[in-house]
Design a protein around this nucleic acid. Structure first.
Length: 834
RNA sequence: GCGGGCGUGGCGGAAUGGCAGACGCGCUGGACUUAGGAUCCAGUGGGAGUGAUCUCGUGGAGGUUCAAGUCCUCUCGCCCGCACCA
């Protein structure tokens, strides 16, 4: 190693100095600003924007490190890359902080944005900060309101009174998507049902398209697509009408098994069903049933929908007529029927539905077999469970003998013909409840007038500004209602006194279109320039946590379809490829304050630098998988970067000759080193470009560095500096998306002009990778017996010939009876003997 | 209950059906050193053997195949999503 330590540069890796230096320089040079239009092909790389909670956590660091590598890689690959960042800045924590500490939500939020954007800059993420947006900024929420008005005008935003999810702790209503296992997604309090008048978006109108277009999402994880599919929950069936015996009313029932209609022995209404009161009026059991209904209504969502809850039912005393059999069957009320699904009433077919079976057993209701499984006789007397499989219709009049799906169709056809029912498609998806009884959100731009009803605020009057001087006591009413200056206004239509809507919008509304706004972040004339949206959208790569699999990702898809319909965008889906990153764990558990296992990014950055933090997080696991935090692993990543520094910096200034080595002139160790460099370029390019396996990309870069250390040990007169130089250049370029600061510093030390981040990604040469010889595994009956070096590029036949000519192979197979020889070129030979 | 994912050394993790454990951490030994928790080099799945080697080994049991961590069937464990959806 003698004589290689030159003078005049840092000889230890001073990450602190380097990182600050380059962050300043990049900002000064506007290095990451991207033009709206370019000759280059576009690439839109987006990470889910964060809620400005105050500090970055490791999940953020992971999310943005992944996005940054993708962006930098694609930039080097010659794309015009849009990589913006912003803030999902409305929401409850700001308001809760205001209540707790007397800081205005706005001040709290903007302070947090300031400190988090500083942290992001310290991580060296390549954002185009000129496009930064914050959803709580007037210049943004004006368009949130404008889009609400568009939905309203198209009949997709409406107000209705309904039993809605109420979180007592957050003091606001929630959308179905925000309720997890009967509890508030945000604070885990048990959700209650309240009868309230609320604003909804008709996402159900798009149910079919949202489901149908899932098949366009080839770049999405199957898991997310399945979750959306299940959430939308399409099911085909029929609605059948059952006439009540002593009234003109009829009850409509949804069923997926109309072929079992001859086996209906009762109907069951949901307790909240509007007909219940009518049916029990003047009946002796009326009071008892009213008490039951009240009790069920008061149950928490969790108890209400748990399969554990005992099924309880009451006879209403009313009867109806099965239009297929003419039978009189009783109408019941029971706790297990849900008003919101289907028609709020189900037909009980105990023989062919497990729930009905158990319910019928409990209440001694008749069980009638109408589907006969093939090759098996079933009898109500000795059944222990319902037969829910396919079979042949039986005891079903003229339908007898019709099998499976055909039966379903036959019954529907008959019902439609007779006007007693029809085939329908039912969805589990409900409309999206978007009003919130809280302050820190975009006000719903509606004015309520006694004469004119719900009147939209005229577009030119937007934004409806959020008043600043408001009390934030959570009362269950929006704090805006306590603000007379805000509430009192005049009707835009008739000019008479009117009141503003005081609820604000669900913040998921704000995040449903932000990725469009990034293309026109400062446009004050329109929500965005459609030409720019067409230039950039759809997002090529979206990256974020799987917790949004339904919420944000479904809402964004819904918005996109609506925006497409009103001609504001030309894409039908917003995100072409989706990467859902795994969680960051410590000691096997998600990092959380309560568990005390939090590692703060600040701490790691100040101790090891941003490059190390990024490197570790990308090296420790592939991006989709959960990542186990390891302090020692971080140490190792730091060690690796230092090792690169020590390898490269002493050599960096040595070479003025930048010519590439000529393959023909290389041999021995020089040829091997040259090959390793090109193999590594190939591997790293594929690992990043094809499959986002940053961990394996880094491990092959490490192998190359190890190889270069070995190579450096060779006496100077025997090695080729051009090979070493080429290796160093490739190493720095490939490492630059991971460790942008250190590689930039060395690039400068080498006297190269321009930023390393503006360079082209290295190319490999196929000839350089070519091996002269390869090691072949020699197996007998699948057991490895020897490894044999043969010339590369042999065909299967040539390989056999070559291998069988070897002495040791001859010895190994001596006397054996060979049945078969399998030769895989470049890999192995397997001999099957008797 | 339904749907999905995952089970590989002491640990994080590699392996288009073709050499299991790349790379990193940790550990062991050596070099350099006043010193090393720095750095460099070497070794490192279990068992047997002085040794070249042999043998077992990817949660478990079967199967397909010349060849299985990888494909199929069953099973166990953990994680996630949905959960009385008619």
């Amino acid at each position: 190693m003698g004589g290689e330590i030159s003078m005049g540069f840092e000889d230890s890796y001073n990450f602190n100095k380097i990182e600050v230096k380059w962050q300043k320089q990049w900002e000064k040079d506007d290095l990451y600003q991207v033009p709206d239009y370019s000759e280059k092909p576009k690439y839109y790389c987006l990470e889910m924007f964060p809620y400005p909670s105050g500090k970055l956590h490791m999940g953020h660091v992971r999310n943005y490190s992944i996005g940054d590598v993708v962006s930098r890689y694609m930039t080097m690959k010659g794309y015009n890359v849009l990589h913006p960042m912003g803030w999902d800045a409305f929401g409850l924590p700001a308001e809760n902080a205001a209540i707790a500490n007397g800081i205005h939500p706005s001040v709290w939020t903007y302070d947090n944005i300031a400190s988090m954007s500083k942290q992001l800059k310290e991580l060296g993420i390549s954002y185009d900060w000129s496009r930064e947006i914050a959803t709580c900024h007037q210049g943004y929420y004006r368009w949130t309101q404008w889009l609400f008005l568009q939905l309203f005008k198209h009949g997709l935003a409406y107000k209705k009174k309904a039993a809605v999810n109420w979180c007592p702790s957050c003091a606001t209503v929630l959308a179905n998507e925000q309720v997890k296992e009967g509890a508030c997604e945000r604070c885990s309090s048990e959700v209650e049902k309240r009868e309230l008048s609320q604003w909804f978006f008709k996402i159900t109108e798009y149910a079919d398209r949202l489901l149908e277009d899932i098949k366009l999402l080839e770049g999405w994880p199957e898991k997310v697509k399945l979750m959306q599919e299940n959430w939308i929950g399409r099911s085909e069936g029929a609605e059948l009408e059952f006439k009540l015996s002593d009234s003109e009313d009829s009850i409509s029932v949804f069923t997926t098994r109309p072929d079992t209609v001859f086996g209906v022995s009762y109907l069951v209404l949901a307790p909240e069903h509007p007909l219940v009161e009518k049916l029990i009026e003047n009946k002796p059991q009326a009071e008892e049933i009213r008490r039951f209904v009240k009790k069920v209504r008061n149950l928490s969502e969790i108890d209400r929908t748990s399969t554990e809850t005992e099924k309880i039912g009451y006879l209403t005393g009313a009867y109806c007529n099965n239009p297929f059999t003419g039978e009189m069957i009783p109408v019941l009320v029971a706790n297990y029927v849900l008003l919101e699904y289907g028609t709020g009433c189900v037909m009980g077919v105990p023989a062919h539905d497990q729930r009905d079976f158990e319910f019928a057993k409990k209440y001694n209701l008749p069980i009638k077999i109408v589907i006969q499984p093939e090759g098996q006789i079933i009898d109500p007397l000795n059944m222990n469970e319902a037969f829910i499989g396919e079979g042949v219709m039986t005891n079903s009049g003229k339908f007898n003998g019709i099998p499976g799906v055909q039966g379903i169709k036959a019954v529907i056809d008959f019902a439609e013909e007779k006007g007693i029912g029809k085939g329908v498609v039912n969805f589990r998806l409900r409309d999206w409840l978007i009003s919130r009884q809280r302050y820190w959100g975009a006000p719903i731009p509606i004015i309520s007038c006694d004469n004119c009803g719900e009147v939209p605020v005229p577009e030119e009057a937007l934004p409806v500004e959020l008043p600043i001087n408001v009390e934030f006591k959570p009362t269950g009413q929006s704090p805006l209602a306590e603000c007379p200056d805000f509430v009192n206004t005049v009707c835009p239509l008739c000019g008479s006194k009117a009141k503003r809507e005081t609820d604000t919008m669900d913040t998921f509304m704000c995040s449903s279109f932000y990725y469009y706004r990034y293309t026109s972040p400062r446009d004050t004339e329109r929500v965005w320039d459609k030409k720019k949206v067409e230039e950039w959208l759809p997002v090529d790569q979206y990256i974020g946590g799987v917790e949004h699999a339904i919420l944000h990702l479904l809402y964004s898809r819904f918005f996109t379809k609506f925006l497409y319909d009103i001609n504001l965008v030309s894409n039908v889906e917003p995100f072409t490829n989706l990467l859902t990153q795994g969680m960051v764990l410590k000691d096997g558990a998600k990092m959380s304050k309560s568990k005390g296992n939090v590692v703060s990014p600040e701490e790691i950055i100040s101790k090891y630098g941003a490059d190390t933090a990024r490197l570790f997080i990308l090296f420790a696991a592939p991006p989709e998988r959960d990542l186990e935090w390891s302090d020692q692993g971080v140490e190792g990543s730091f060690r690796f970067l230092s090792r690169v520094w020590r390898l490269v910096v002493p050599l960096a200034t040595r070479f003025s000759d930048r010519s590439k080595p000529e393959l023909e002139t290389l041999s021995g160790a020089n040829r091997d080193m040259h090959r390793l460099v090109h193999q590594t370029i190939k591997k790293v390019t594929e690992d990043i470009g094809n499959r986002f396996n940053f961990n394996t990309a880094l491990s092959s870069i490490m192998e190359m560095v190890n190889g270069m250390y070995q190579y450096r040990e060779i006496p100077q007169d025997q090695r080729d500096d051009r090979v070493l130089n080429e290796g160093i250049e490739a190493l720095l370029l490939m490492l630059s998306p991971f460790a942008p600061h250190m590689t930039e510093e060395i690039w400068e030390l080498m006297g190269r002009s321009g930023s390393i981040h503006s360079q082209a990604w290295p190319e490999y040469s196929q000839e350089a990778i070519q091996q002269e010889s390869v090691e072949i595994v020699f197996q007998i009956k699948g057991k490895i017996k020897d490894r044999i070096l043969v010339p590369s590029g042999l065909s299967a036949e040539e390989l056999k010939e070559e291998v069988f000519s070897r002495e040791n192979v001859k010895n190994l197979i001596e006397g054996a009876e060979i049945l078969k020889v399998i030769a895989v070129p470049g890999k192995l030979i397997n001999i099957v003997t008797k």
